[in-house]
Write a protein that binds this DNA or RNA. Structure first.
Lengths: 340, 340
DNA sequence: TTGAAAGCGCTAACAC
DNA sequence: GTGTTAGCGCTTTCAA
């Protein structure tokens, strides 16, 4: 049988109210009884029932974490790491995280995660891009929401985002400082905020260093930022006979594709072309050459999201705060000083 | 304000008990009132509070899912898929799944997942190999346990396992049926049940077809079943000048390493050596040539685990049942008929 | 500073 | 068939 607050009260010779009071150190409790109660708790190894607590407090102690199926199953454990950060932070703060995946195609009759229908969470963290239809359906429940690595096109929300602009900037800075002037950029769909921000960082860096932006050096518009599209983008650049000595790819997947294309055409990396990616995925260090990239601290994204959620829950206000998680340049072997 | 059972009762003009009764269609309720209640539930969009329910029923409605950090973060989403299966099955059965990762190194003072300390789950599913120390600490809580893809060395448990013996057998059968006689096996640590079972399947298939087992064709003992070790194992085979026309690798990672080594030495796959792997990981289809392998239905493992857990929870007995999830041969391009 | 008691939303005897 | 009621474990006024 599970130990209850009554057991503790009896053993400490006090009322259940007192136990509850010391548990949450509310009001003034004499040091003496406080000690007695604490001792009883220790001895009985008592852990308050979250369920009973939730019933009276009208909170569940759970936080929902929503991810599309695609994102959860990605080979690269990007969102998995974010989730881990959230789970980690939740431990300290006495929350449980309920993970739910939703389909990538969300229709009017697609059911919402059970924890929203049953109102079994106090707030919801949404990681990565999700269907707008999902958000529409979710809205009426009025849950506190925190977005991670995604910001919906309309509306104002609390969110934890990657500092993409700065990332794009320091990636480009790095290349410029190595003496490069003809720096290509390959990206995907510019509608996607992360990509357009990285692109913006690229342009800002050029500007800062007094280099002129050259549209010929830029390939964007690919639907997805996949390895294949990175391959294609660089081939296109090469086919147009565009000259460049360095390349900033909007993510590591595209950078990998770029490397393949360059290798196939006999172009040496980094001797002839230096490459910087973005994300710092697992494989980077094992590529040939190991890829210089912008590291994104994935667990931090999850931790910050959970912290933000707690802020909202505790202060009981919708802050609509945006947190930008800092990124970092990781120099490996795919970039080198320009020689002439 | 959330809708409660009282609101429904009032609207339907019945008592809360009646509402509860129709909710769980216990006892006989007149068709007429049943309809009225159902209608009220509909109109109010009522969802019973799991929390309140849990309090009286003394269940939490949660299932814990434990994974080591390494397994959760593996690039290949093996356990992630298993988790997804569990989550999926849980939806129907009105359970929530609480995921917790534990460190790979578990010491006496490493804290248990919070849901065990707070007894906030009805049972725990443990996926993959976990530290024995963890199991030791867990034991005293007396939770219903279901293991997935792992079976502790001591004790009797409920578990969902891959049918490794059969997998090893059909992999080898396939090669034999293609005319191969000299079939090599590369595996890792034979202490690991999955590996020794696949190895056993290999031997059983040979026996079944009247082929004699040749120890020279077998390389085992590598610590981990990594790509690198697959590479090394095949190199060792080649260096010993062992002749073989086919190879069964105990998993796809090793098979990939094997392919690399063979290619490097100028040996053609499948013309000179046919290869079968095990697991059917994501990349298999994109290898050159695409890898023939034994497919493991990962989500099924998770689904079966959840079903088994429900069995245990509903019938309130510890079945200690073992469920073997069937595997399947997937023929791609890495195997071909032996020519002479 | 501490205790008595009400009540959170639900279920299950038991009574009618 | 349906309603009354006690009670699950906890928090929180209110009173002492």
């Amino acid at each position: 049988m599970k130990i209850t607050i009554h057991d503790v009260a009896r053993r400490a010779g006090v009322s259940t109210a007192t136990v509850s009071l010391v548990l949450h150190n509310k009001r003034k409790i004499s040091e003496e009884t406080r000690k007695r109660v604490l001792k009883a708790i220790q001895e009985l190894n008592y852990h308050p029932s979250q369920v009973a607590r939730g019933l009276v407090l009208k909170q569940t102690g759970n936080i929902g974490f929503v991810l599309t199926e695609d994102h959860f199953l990605r080979t690269e454990p990007f969102y998995t790491r974010i989730f881990l950060g959230t789970e980690f932070e939740a431990r300290d703060s006495n929350y449980f995280v309920l993970l739910a995946t939703i389909p990538n195609d969300f229709f009017d009759d697609t059911p919402l995660p059970r924890f929203v229908m049953q109102q079994n969470v106090d707030g919801i963290i949404i990681a990565g891009k999700v269907p707008l239809k999902f958000l529409d359906k979710l809205r009426s429940y009025n849950f506190p929401l925190v977005f991670v690595d995604y910001y919906p096109p309309r509306g104002t929300y609390s969110a934890v985002l990657i500092d993409n602009i700065r990332g794009g900037m320091i990636a480009t800075d790095h290349l410029i400082e190595l003496g490069h002037q003809k720096i290509a950029f390959i990206g995907g769909d510019l509608q996607h905020p992360s990509i357009s921000e990285r692109y913006l960082g690229y342009k800002l860096a050029l500007e800062k260093h007094g280099l002129t932006y050259d549209a010929d050096l830029v390939v964007t518009g690919e639907q997805s930022t996949s390895k294949e599209n990175g391959y294609r983008a660089v081939c296109a650049l090469l086919d147009k006979k565009t000259e460049f000595t360095a390349l900033f790819a909007c993510n590591d997947a595209m950078a990998m594709g770029a490397m393949e294309c360059l290798k196939k055409r006999g172009i040496k990396i980094p001797e002839q072309v230096s490459i910087v990616g973005f994300d710092d995925i697992e494989q980077d260090a094992f590529l040939d050459p190991p890829l210089t990239t912008i590291a994104v601290p994935k667990p931090d994204l999850g931790i910050e999201a959970m912290k933000l959620m707690q802020d909202i829950l505790n202060k009981n206000i919708r802050t609509n705060k945006k947190v930008l998680v800092p990124v970092e340049l990781v120099v490996r072997k795919s970039t080198t000083r320009l020689r002439d």
